[in-house]
Design a binder for these strands. Structure first.
Length: 492
RNA sequence: CGGGGUGUAGCGUAGCCCGGUAUCGCGUCUGGUUUGGGACCAGAAGGUCGUCAGUUCGAAUCUGGCCACCCCGACCA
């Protein structure tokens, strides 16, 4: 199946964008680099939000909301962070328009309404949140603060692609404050586990947990951790990151607390986020030539029912026969769509729901009414079978479980088949230009080597895996000693 | 910001070199036949040809400015 997908990078990119549009998930907006998320795409995001929100709350976090605008002076307080984002910030400089005297009916920016201080549209919220935390924290009794925010952020990217990189995107960002280094580090890794759990159990996407190299880490962080997934074209996708901020932001925003022993110290911080990019990952990890394949746990529609009828009378008969089944499916917590439109033929509907990745489709026609059966088709394998109406709900629930498991197993096998250990630079380049995928290789740990490899091959160190076998070797580039393999790939 | 390209109906396009109010497909609408895998036939509607200016009797077509978008670089924790 994956073989049928376009392999050349540009073909795959085109295939991906076409799919996003055909599946009715999103489209480019008239606003530069921005995206309109259509109802079906947004429904997937809502499923993701629900699952993640519950996981955050189960680990003691609460939601809050902070302003979209960050005064420039506040933004620049943490220098590394400000520098890292400076080149992609949208900035508000005026607060008013007025009629343009030289062009009747047109508006112009009112030069008299220039802001004294420019406002940066948040590319991330550390600055505004830490400047707020300063007011909230005095004592160890005020800690920890475990807050998550669902928001939009703006990063003025040069080149954008639906879901994967857009000028404005939706995400959640967690920002926590702790009394001890240990507690903040634990939080950083706990959320990394939450993200991995979500990717594997909801998205059916196996991920590698690891630490970013210094060259790839978040500006302002002491350590950045990530989960990396592998897409069907052999490129890696960073699916989520968590950052141990040390005391960097506390120092920048002067957030101190009095500890139990009476000593004054800076607060320890973390931040972490995942975005609508995950929807892109979901598509690229599972889709085939017929369209999206959604894991049941994130599918807005679990089961679509398509009646096959010739006349209105026949539709009425089918509808009344299927109604009890719909009631039972919904009672079992499933999202069911009964598509009784008489404006489209069944074949058209089949194709459309396949394109949209609906996991299970039921077709029911006169033949089934006579036999007391339903035709059930599963999206992942495209198998069709006829089952009795009695017990259909259990059969479908079981099928959804199987689809969820099968998608994960399939993606895991794909990743295993496309992860290669290499020991020489020649082999490294050959694999990247051939089957691509993840490449495990020894690295001398220097930023210089990392930069050289990136420059020459476009491959980056995705992460230093948290789980790895200690193994002495020598760097594929410099030949210097290395204590373990790191994960390389070309990435989105 | 450098290099290349494109702007024509809701979408995708032909026409441009060689000037005469615009082609085809998808979609939409109407009528009929269809309906267990993206239906067919007949008819219809839909256009400031990105924008502003210039050349010309006449500009989608030629010239210049501007705008927007796409691709390749640079950039993308």
């Amino acid at each position: 199946m994956a073989k049928q997908l376009p392999t050349r990078a540009e073909d795959y990119a085109q295939w991906y964008v076409d799919l996003v549009k055909k599946a009715d998930l999103a489209e480019n907006s008239d606003v530069r680099g921005c995206m309109v998320i259509k109802p079906y795409g947004y429904a997937i995001w809502e499923k993701m939000q629900q699952a993640l929100d519950k996981m955050f709350k189960d680990t003691g976090h609460v939601n809050a909301y902070f302003p979209l605008f960050v005064p420039k002076s506040m933004f620049e307080a943490e220098e590394k962070n400000a520098e890292g984002f400076a080149k992609e910030c949208a900035v508000v400089t005026h607060y008013r328009l007025k009629n343009d005297p030289s062009r009747p009916g047109k508006l112009m920016v009112d030069p008299d309404a220039k802001l004294e201080e420019e406002l940066v549209v948040r590319p991330t919220s550390e600055a505004i949140i830490w400047s707020t935390y300063k007011k909230w924290i005095q004592s160890y009794r005020d800690l920890p603060i475990l807050i998550n925010q669902w928001a939009n952020v703006v990063r003025w990217e040069m080149r954008t692609r639906l879901f994967l990189r857009t000028a404005e995107f939706l995400w959640q960002e967690g920002h926590t404050a702790h009394a001890t280094r240990q507690e903040a580090e634990t939080e950083t890794l706990r959320i990394l586990d939450v993200y991995a759990d979500f990717a594997e159990n909801f998205m059916a996407l196996p991920v590698i947990k690891g630490k970013k190299s210094d060259g790839e880490k978040f500006p302002g962080a002491v350590d950045t951790y990530c989960i990396e997934g592998l897409m069907q074209d052999g490129k890696a996708l960073q699916c989520g990151t968590t950052h141990f901020l040390g005391q960097n932001f506390a120092e920048a925003f002067d957030v101190k607390f009095t500890a139990k022993d009476g000593k004054l110290d800076y607060v320890w911080g973390t931040s972490w986020g995942v975005s609508t990019r995950l929807i892109g990952g979901l598509i690229m990890a599972h889709a085939d030539d017929d369209g999206l394949i959604l894991p049941p746990k994130l599918a807005p529609i679990h089961v679509v029912i398509v009646p096959i009828f010739r006349s209105e009378e026949e539709l009425t008969r089918i509808s009344s026969a299927i109604e009890p089944v719909i009631v039972l499916l919904r009672a079992a917590g499933l999202s069911v769509k009964y598509d009784n439109r008489d404006t489209q033929k069944p074949g058209f509907k089949f194709a459309q729901y396949e394109m949209q990745g609906v996991p299970v489709r039921i077709a029911v026609g006169p033949r089934d009414l006579d036999n007391g059966t339903l035709e059930v088709a599963r999206r992942d394998t495209k198998e069709k079978k006829v089952i009795p109406v009695d017990g259909a709900v259990q059969a479908i629930e079981q099928m959804l479980d199987e689809i969820q498991k099968n998608l994960y197993a399939r993606a895991l096998k794909f990743r295993e088949d496309n992860t290669t250990k290499v020991d020489t630079y020649e082999e490294f380049k050959r694999v990247l230009d051939g089957e691509a995928g993840f490449v495990l290789a020894h690295w001398d740990g220097t930023a210089a080597t990392e930069a050289k490899i990136k420059e020459e091959t476009k491959a980056t160190i995705r992460c230093i895996p948290l789980v790895s076998v200690a193994e002495d070797g020598s760097c594929i580039y410099s030949g210097k000693p290395s204590a373990g393999r790191v994960l390389f790939a070309r990435a989105y």
